[in-house]
Design a protein around this nucleic acid. Structure first.
Lengths: 350, 350
DNA sequence: TTATTCTTCCAAAGCGCTTTGAAACAATGT
DNA sequence: ACATTGTTTCAAAGCGCTTTGGAAGAATAA
């Protein structure tokens, strides 16, 4: 059943039927009702390809996620982000096309999306400190939003990010105030902007509190479970091992926990750990007293909101650049406790 | 630059240009080369919406993943599966549209995808033992492939699945042969077909080996980390606690490990654990001696292959029904060791 | 030479929708 | 009565591609 059939059945022109269905005012309420009712009865569904061709709107948003050769550790993150975004799209009748593209081909993908008009907007994820993609997107002219920021980029663009600097400063200060001085940072890949900001937050906290910085305590890598494990094993072998760890992902935290277990070191007592937590529900780091003390921000909520902002821009309801900075929440769990210097700045006595 | 422009520039008809570009034989090699060269120089890209309207082909495959109210624990799994599928699609010029839909709306989504022709095929995931979706898909007439199977469905359909029955029988027998008799199963939700099969594999192994079945040792739930934790805590409180665990997911295994740690029980020595492993690389359960003993099968490879099969069917290169059953691989890691009855069936002495 | 078959190309119809510009009609004012 | 305005509907022209049914030209056969 297509428009022509339907209008024939109704004895109306395609124009009128189309307008009635799309809520245009120049159609009497009576005929509109007739049309809608008939459309329902005959199960009429407009052919989206025809609509797209006629309107030039794709009714789709492209998520292109770069897959580095180092492999897709970020998948679970992207997945939850996408799940959130999808909720928004569904509510607005948009579709989501997901492309997982090798780093070198991302730019091409953007180009072809723009030139063929296969999407109305693009969401880019986890930018690097200096990320050429943003310039490309800017030149292309498609509306886009970046999940995260790119520090070294001069352009203005739409982004939604969490305050990674603050989050890691807060986390670090929490550890310092708990009496820790040797704090290790197991960071994500530091060409990625968020990891870079996290390190700066960490360093800032050390400096502000007069805690010396030992570069040997900072490591950076894909945020896998094994990375957490190896790092802790190695760092605990130091002459002066850390008494606390900051990890960039719950996966890394889990690996760290495994290592501490292997070494027979009690987490939350002998050693403390604060992790960033994307609030992935299957890790279940919630409840009244979560397992890991964390700085937490829901990646799924970020997806929902990012999609909404982008749609608003596409529909002309907001003027770019739109930017939104979220604060992560410090949540005290069971993985932290007083450090060797407890009592100095806080008042726990000893 | 569209077809008309391009053909004007070349002094050829749209017909000829279109044919030259699409590899039809009724065009001389000389003109074909001219056309291709010009297309490249002017950066011509066909408008996909127009192509779709004209051909009726959507050049897209729909992945619709049901989101139960119980929340999307499966996300990381789907994500890796999708990543694999995407590799295949990209190679064939197809797009992937991802819809995350509430359970009740899945059927509608299928319907609308078929009626509007927005995709050429559908991939359905993690079916239940008796899953109405399969009948719906069958009636709809779109090519589809199920990742997993639905035991109680009479229809023939295309599927790719791993041999869950065998995998869990093998895993269970491995534990039995290692001297375990009290083996707990922390299964996924048992309305899901794969979970149901796993339980049967487990029961079959017990029966075959004359090991009594204690229903109190079997639990079933979303495969989260906390589920593993709680279950182990509770089960270890039994008068006669299990000496081994089978878990349906590495997440659950991680939770189990945490619980054992809390209880001060040594994993791999005092208690053994075998888990199913989807081979998600960020969990890093690989290497020479993986952390967890597991029955392993790459979910990403499954995604790649599933997409390939579906495309083959769509392109008429294979006749449905196509089915493919993969065997999972038993990989010995550090989470298992001899049980209290070691020496009975194997020959470890004592 | 004329008839016949390939080879190479084309004009035009069609895919199913939206949208422009205009017509038909009713309602209002003078 | 006629002009004017407002309301409701329509025919037809796109959107950019594919594909059908020829036609023109070249090559071969009689």
């Amino acid at each position: 059943m297509n428009l022509k059939n339907l209008s024939d059945v109704l004895g109306l022109s395609q124009t009128t039927v189309s307008r009635a269905l799309n809520g245009y005012p120049e159609v009497s309420e009576l005929t509109r009702r007739r049309v809608i009712e008939a459309a329902q009865r005959y199960g009429y569904r407009p052919n989206p390809h025809a609509t797209r061709l006629a309107t030039g709107r794709a009714m789709a948003i492209g998520h292109v996620i770069p897959m580095s050769s180092q492999n897709s550790v970020m998948n679970p993150i992207f997945a939850d982000f996408a799940a959130g975004a999808n909720e928004t799209y569904a509510r607005h009748g948009y579709e989501m096309t997901l492309s997982i593209v090798r780093d070198e081909e991302v730019e091409n993908k953007y180009r072809s999306m723009a030139e063929t008009g296969s999407v109305d907007g693009i969401i880019a994820s986890s930018p690097m400190i200096s990320d050429p993609r943003i310039e490309v997107l800017n030149r292309i002219g498609l509306p886009f939003l970046v999940h995260g920021r790119s520090s070294a980029t001069g352009y203005e663009y739409n982004w939604l990010d969490i305050n990674n600097f603050r989050a890691f400063r807060v986390a670090t200060e929490f550890l310092i105030h708990s009496g820790h001085r040797r704090i290790a940072l197991l960071n994500g890949p530091e060409q990625l902007d968020f990891a870079f900001r996290r390190r700066r937050g960490y360093l800032d906290a050390l400096r502000r509190n007069g805690v010396g910085h030992d570069p040997g305590l900072v490591r950076s890598s894909e945020m896998t479970e094994p990375f957490g494990h190896e790092s802790v094993i190695e760092l605990m072998r130091l002459e002066e091992p850390p008494t606390a760890f900051l990890t960039a992902s719950i996966l890394t935290a889990i690996g760290a926990r495994r290592a501490l277990h292997d070494l027979n070191i009690l987490l939350g007592t002998e050693v403390s750990l604060v992790t960033h937590d994307d609030s992935l529900d299957y890790f279940g780091n919630s409840g009244t007293e979560p397992v890991f003390t964390s700085v937490r921000s829901s990646i799924r909520a970020a997806g929902r909101r990012s999609a909404q902002i982008l749609l608003d821009i596409i529909l002309g309801q907001r003027e770019p650049p739109v930017t939104e900075l979220w604060e992560a929440e410090l949540v005290i769990g069971k993985s932290t406790g007083p450090g060797p210097h407890a009592g100095w700045s806080a008042g726990t006595g000893q």
